[in-house]
Each structure stands twice: as structure tokens, then as C-alpha cells.
Amino acid sequence: MADPKLKQMIEAGEFIAAPGVFDMISTLVADRMGFPALYVTGYGIAASHLGLPDAGIMTYTDMESRVRRIVEGAQTPVIADADTGYGGLLNVRHTVRGYEAAGVTAIQIEDQEYPKKCGHTPGRRVVPLEDMIAKIKVACDSRSSADFLIIARTDSRTALGLDEALRRGEAFEKAGADVIFIEAPETVEEMRIINDRIGKPTLANMVSGGRTPVLPSAELAQLGFAIGIHPALGFLAVGEALKHAYGALADSGDVSAVALEDFGDFSKLMGFEDVWAFDRKWAEV
């Protein structure tokens, strides 16, 4: 079931900073750090699970199975990327029901044409506005709990301009979406305009190297955003760390100077303490 705490925090005006998680290691690390929410990134799942780009290749089944495991392993409310809803209106209903049954607290659905692309890459095209409005209405009608939040995203800013993105955001708001996500604003002023125009809670996507300025949480909150997601933070950090560690091994064969997590602490994070306790209990049986 959806965790009511996320909706309560948003209604109370608390800013939600959500790191991107993409596998169980990133989930278990982030879950213990006291974040108000975790964000399951489609880009990260496509990269870690398939080794492929976030370009509409990953299916609903690919994503739902990994989202479900992440929710099972975390105590923190989970916001999950659902791309375009994985098809037409019937697919949207199936996706919403599946994500809610998996324990997701908020689902993100966007207005891109299929196959979709990462929101900070070129070549994105959007569906007609009325098609996305229908998806939002179906999504709202398909959930069983009002604590399960519908995040509606438009990718129209890059190709069609800010005015069209704002028009769509306002329409998404009227259609019943709980949170409005205007992807890829290009300046702080555009981010300010979004919050001046949109009446419902808004989401900012902080992608290092992307189109949108990456701002501290305090500044995002001051601009009026309710949620700030950092989908790429985890896998970009891991990628850089792996290059250093594997590079040391490849270059010199000596990894003694590589900064590493303590093996014992990592084993505890993975749940080995339970295994050790089980072994002690049943060792002589």
C-alpha cells in the first residue's frame, strides 16, 4: 500500500529530497540515510538491469519487478518512474494498479510519444495534450487509495517551448494530477515561473550534466518546488568510483590506496547479521 507519510509531508509544506535508486545496493544505502522518499529511476534501472539506454526499450514487466523488490527492501516511501504508462489507456490502468499493488507511493507518467527518451536528451516528442489528459484521468480513476499520488510530467519544454509546457502543466493540474512535473526548464527564472503558474505541488528534476540548473534543496524549496529528485546522482557516483577502483587494478595491480566501504559494514548492510544469528541458533541441530 502507498505510504501516507509522503502526501502528509507535501501537504504540510515539507520539502521532499529524493535520491535516485537503481538497484538493491543503492536502495539499502539510501534507505538508511533518513530521506523522506526514494526515487526509482527508469534510466538507472535500464542501465543497471539491461545495460541499455533509457529509450523505451525496457518493458512494464522489467520495471515493475525491480520496483517491487526495491519497495520490499526499503522502509522509505518510494516514487517510481513509469515512463508513458507503457502504452495506451488500458496499459496505464494496468501500470497504476501494478505499481500500487507493489507498494509504490507515487507514480510518474509522462506525455512523450512511444518509444520515450530520457528527459535530458534530444529528440523527444510529445503526444497531443488531450491524450495525456485522458491518461491522467485513467490513472486517477485506477488507484484504490488517495495516498497513492499521480505525478504528471510534460517533456514539451525542449521542443515546443516554456509556454506550451506551462499550458500542459495547468491542464494536468485540472485533470487531477497530484504533482506537476515540467521537465527540463533551462534557467532558474523558468523554474520560478513554473511555480508562479502552477497551483499544485511541483517537482524539480536535478540531473547533473542535464538541461536544468542543479540547485540545493533549500533553493528549490524557496522557488516553490515540493519535491526535488536526483535520479542520476547514485549511478553517476558509482560509475566514477568504479572507474577509479578498476582503473587502479588495471594500471598497477595495486588497490591498497582505493577508498572502499568496510567489508564487515557492507556485509551487515546486506543482512548477514540475520544469517549469522540463524547459524548460531541452529548450529547444533
Rank of each mutant, 00 (worst) to 15 (best):
K5E: 13
E11M: 04
E14A: 13
E14P: 00
E14G: 02
F15K: 08
G20N: 06
G20P: 05
V21M: 12
D23R: 09
D23L: 04
D23A: 09
M24A: 09
T27F: 03
A30G: 01
D31F: 01
R32N: 14
M33D: 00
A37P: 02
A37C: 06
G42F: 05
G42V: 03
I45L: 15
L52S: 02
L52G: 00
P53T: 12
P53S: 14
I57M: 14
I57L: 15
M58K: 08
T59W: 06
I70A: 07
V71Q: 02
A74K: 01
A74I: 01
Q75T: 11
D81K: 00
A82H: 03
N91E: 15
V92L: 11
R97I: 06
Y99A: 15
E100Q: 11
A101L: 10
G103A: 02
A106D: 05
Q108F: 00
D111T: 02
Q112L: 08
E113D: 14
P115K: 02
K116Y: 00
K117G: 04
T121C: 08
G123W: 05
R124G: 04
V127K: 11
L129E: 13
D131I: 10
I133M: 14
I133T: 05
K135A: 01
K135I: 00
I136R: 09
K137E: 14
D141F: 13
D141P: 07
S142Q: 11
A146R: 15
I151N: 07
I151Q: 09
R153K: 10
D155M: 00
L162P: 02
L162F: 01
E164Q: 12
A165K: 05
R167C: 08
R167A: 12
R168A: 01
E170R: 09
K174H: 13
K174V: 10
A175F: 09
A175N: 01
G176D: 04
A177I: 03
D178M: 07
F181W: 09
I182G: 11
P185S: 10
P185H: 08
E186A: 14
E186Q: 15
V188T: 15
E189G: 06
R192P: 01
D196P: 04
I198M: 07
A204G: 10
N205K: 04
N205C: 08
M206E: 14
M206G: 12
G209T: 05
G210S: 12
G210C: 10
V214C: 14
L215D: 06
L215P: 05
S217A: 15
A218L: 05
L220V: 02
A221E: 09
A221L: 00
Q222Y: 08
Q222D: 14
Q222S: 11
L223E: 00
G224F: 00
F225T: 00
F225I: 00
A226F: 02
A226W: 07
A226C: 04
A226V: 00
I229Q: 08
I229T: 14
F235K: 07
L236E: 05
L236Y: 13
D251C: 09
V255K: 02
A257K: 15
A259S: 15
F266R: 12
F266W: 11
F266N: 11
F266K: 10
M270A: 13
M270Y: 10
F272Y: 12
E273C: 13
E273T: 15
D274K: 14
V275A: 15
F278V: 03
F278A: 08
W282P: 03
W282Q: 12
A283Q: 06
A283W: 05
